[in-house]
């Protein structure tokens, strides 16, 4: 039994971590490791960087191919895709946000880890809306690139 099956929290060992270089370029990071019948992310990628053996297989991202366009972020029904890009000592994380109120650019928000604990204060840099989903990009401390997965306004 994997620990995430018990508590719902992935550990870094469960995931394929991009290299420092890949992170600097920016990558789609997918926290979807179970075999579930779902593949819109594959269809959404304009460069074919996301692949699946079949509809049930977990998605594999070719971090080198990925152009960090963010097309896949808003399409994922599991809210499991994050765009991560580091710059200097900062990290830019793009994620789906389905709560009210919607922050505005420049707002300071709490940055939460996979357990919902506050680990940092982040600044909202960009807000996009796709269908009825808000896609928000925040700037935070680079050390938390692999930890921050949620915000609280």
């Amino acid at each position: 039994m994997h620990s995430y099956e018990k508590d719902g929290i992935l550990t870094l060992e469960d995931l394929v971590i991009p290299t420092k270089k890949q992170l600097e370029k920016g990558v789609a990071f997918i926290e979807c490791i179970q075999e579930i019948p779902c593949n819109p992310c594959v269809d959404s990628c304009p460069v074919g960087a996301i692949s699946m053996k079949n509809i049930n297989a977990p998605p594999i991202v070719d971090y080198d191919k990925c152009i960090a366009c963010g097309q896949c972020i808003g399409i994922c029904p599991g809210l499991a895709i994050f765009l991560i890009k580091t710059k200097g000592d900062k990290v830019f994380i793009t994620l789906q946000y389905e709560f009210l109120p919607i922050p505005i650019v420049g707002n300071k928000v709490k940055a939460l880890n996979r357990k919902g604990e506050v680990v940092d204060t982040a600044i909202v840099k960009r807000i996009a809306k796709k269908d009825k989903t808000f896609i928000i990009t925040i700037e935070a401390n680079k050390d938390f690139a692999m930890e921050i997965r949620n915000i609280r306004v």
């Binding site: 995430y4 099956e5 508590d7 719902g8 929290i9 992935l10 926290e31 979807c32 490791i33 179970q34 579930i36 599991g78 809210l79 499991a80 939460l112 880890n113 996979r114 357990k115 919902g116 997965r149 949620n150």
Partner: peptide, 9 residues
Amino acid sequence: HVHAAKLRR
């Protein structure tokens, strides 16, 4: 798991 993760976050 993806649904569980949303809650845990």
